[in-house]
Simulated assay, not measured.
Amino acid sequence: MRSYELCAVKLSDLDFERKTVFIPKKKGKIDRYVPLSPLLIRGLKKYITTENPQGHLFNSQVSKAGESRGLTTNGIRWIIKENRSKIGSSKQITAHTLRHTFATHLLEYGVDIVSLKELLGHAHIEMTLTYLHVANLPSGSKFSPLDKLYD
């Protein structure tokens, strides 16, 4: 998901039974559900039990009135920067880099481009097609359609 979508995730958007998180319409103007892996669900449940977030899944600051606020995109940038230094990487890593890497790996694991479009929340397939250029896809066996005509 996009970083601003992550910031907006509310506890009520999580559905551990269906293993999904609801992402309301934003940039692509399409509501969508993103799958949650069992491993991620386990981690989120532990986080929720330990941190007891209110409203948003990831809380950051508290308003002057004492209301909790959701994590901000600046907060995400700070978290990524802090953790990049811990792993000793000199590579430029952003939230969008992580999104792009996720999409590329899905293509490499065989997810079709239409499903990827829906997962990423793209309004137009052309945006999703850009991921094909960087994915390391197996070329498969080349054949002529005539070879398959009588199979």
Rank of each mutant, 00 (worst) to 15 (best):
R2N: 09
C7W: 09
A8L: 03
V9W: 00
K10Q: 12
L14M: 05
F16D: 07
E17R: 13
T20W: 02
F22C: 05
P24W: 13
R32P: 00
V34R: 05
V34C: 05
V34P: 09
S37R: 01
L39V: 07
I41W: 07
L44R: 04
K46R: 11
I48D: 04
I48V: 09
T49Y: 00
P53G: 09
Q54V: 12
L57D: 06
N59R: 11
K64V: 02
G66S: 12
R69E: 15
G70T: 07
N74T: 13
G75V: 06
K81M: 06
N83T: 12
G88C: 00
S89T: 15
S89Y: 05
S90L: 09
K91A: 09
T94C: 01
A95N: 04
H100G: 02
T101E: 00
A103G: 11
A103R: 08
T104E: 09
Y109T: 07
V111T: 15
I113T: 06
L116S: 09
L119K: 00
L120Q: 01
G121L: 02
M127N: 12
T128R: 06
L132Y: 14
S141M: 09
K142I: 15
K142V: 10
D147H: 12
D147E: 14
K148S: 10
Y150K: 08
D151M: 11
